[in-house]
Computed example of a mutant assay.
Amino acid sequence: MRCQVAAVRIPPNFFGIPFGLAGLGNTWIVSGRNGTVPTWVGNGLLALAALTWLAVLVAYAAYTLPKPRALVGDMVDPIAGPFVSLAVITPTLLAAQGVVPYALGVGRVLVDVFLVLTVVYGGWITGQWIYGRIDIDQINPGYFLPTVAGGFIASIAASAVGQRTLADIMLGLGLICWLVLGSLILNRLFTRPTLPATLVPTLAIEVAPPALAGLALLARSGESIDVWVMLVFGYGLLLVLAQIRLLPLYLRLGFGPSFWSFTFAWSAVATSALHWISGTQPPGHRVYTFLVLAAISALIGGIAVRSVVAVTRGRFLPPPAPPAAP
């Protein structure tokens, strides 16, 4: 009689963990470059995000490579599919913020490679959404990830390596996809029943597109806060305030890996706020900077601690996949 050890299933939304850590690192990097805090804090967080991304990638590969149908199943799944994109979007941001300032040549190669992979996957999943059949109730703000977040982050990364034309192309990709998908997602949220509990945290992703659009515009214009930045930040302010009304939904949730949906979205908002504070320098701007850093660090740090506790108690990873029938 032979025993078969069931593989631990790693869902694609686990890539949201290094994505959130990369967002926090980027927030500290922005503040560090303004001279407010030491730059080593942001670099350390980016290094932690890179190690976490590698660990999740290895674990995901160990689960999917022996059975390619699992990978294909995730890619075509209307819920899991968008989160697969974070496997290539996260290293794009890490390369732009953590490698380019110290090794431009290596950083440019990494940015270009992962940017191409981001666009390829974004195109593929767009075709999948057209080809497949998606129930409108399955649509959620996670659909912003492959093309909207991917496009804006690719634009930021291209600006970081001095590829202005490519940055504009990626900005256009992100903007148009935001307009199309934003209308579709809000229509689903306005007119259909509330999202299932496991998807409720993805509502936090709604604040990410305007924040990322503003950051992409800032990267393109050399940190100049012009009218276009003000326009997208204005819409972003509306969505941030809308999150207050969603607090009753969030407070009823039990903790799980989906809580990492809060991390990158709010780190993008925090980074946008820091750019605004630095660009306008209102009275007490240093105090505001520290308050923003403290708030976003407490949020993501708290989620990280809860995740570690859940792992130690065996409540974080999904149950192992059942062994195949003989």
Rank of each mutant, 00 (worst) to 15 (best):
A265Q: 01
R252C: 09
L117Q: 04
A160W: 04
S155P: 03
A96R: 03
I153Q: 02
D77C: 07
G174R: 01
I10P: 00
R69A: 15
S31P: 12
N187F: 11
L293W: 01
I10T: 07
L46N: 04
G73V: 02
L166G: 12
G254C: 06
P209K: 07
F83S: 07
A96L: 05
L71T: 10
T147G: 12
I303M: 06
R286F: 05
A219C: 09
G162M: 11
R133G: 11
G222N: 00
A157N: 00
G182E: 00
W53G: 00
L246M: 14
A103Q: 06
S297R: 06
A6G: 12
Y143A: 02
V287C: 11
P319I: 15
L93Y: 04
G16F: 01
L166W: 08
S31D: 09
V180C: 09
G256A: 11
L166E: 13
L166D: 08
A242P: 10
P318K: 03
P257T: 08
L184T: 11
T198Q: 13
T202M: 02
V116N: 05
L238V: 15
F19N: 03
T165E: 13
G214Q: 03
A59W: 05
V180A: 13
V309H: 09
R133K: 15
P283V: 06
V200M: 11
G98N: 10
L24E: 00
W228M: 15
G44S: 07
L115M: 13
P11G: 07
F15W: 00
R313E: 07
D137M: 11
A325N: 13
A103V: 06
L239Q: 04
V240Q: 07
L291V: 14
A242M: 11
L299F: 05
T39K: 10
Y60N: 09
P319F: 11
A80D: 13
V308K: 12
G302Y: 02
E223K: 09
M230W: 14
T52P: 06
I139H: 10
P78Q: 10
V88M: 04
T39C: 07
F114V: 09
Q128S: 15
L317T: 05
L93C: 07
S261I: 06
R188M: 02
A324Y: 00
G35Q: 10
P82R: 06
L218H: 05
I29W: 05
V113F: 04
P196K: 06
C3K: 15
L218N: 03
Y250I: 08
L117T: 04
R252A: 13
V305A: 03
I205N: 00
L51T: 12
G32Y: 10
G150Q: 03
P101V: 05
D77A: 10
G20M: 01
N26V: 15
P101W: 01
A197C: 08
L246E: 12
A321I: 14
G73M: 08
R9P: 10
G150M: 02
L94H: 04
A298D: 09
V76P: 02
F259W: 12
Q243N: 10
N43V: 14
G81C: 05
S261A: 14
A103R: 08
I10R: 07
I29A: 08
P209C: 08
N34D: 13
L46R: 00
V106N: 08
L179C: 14
L24M: 12
V37H: 00
R313V: 11
L299H: 03
S297Y: 08
L115A: 15
F19E: 02
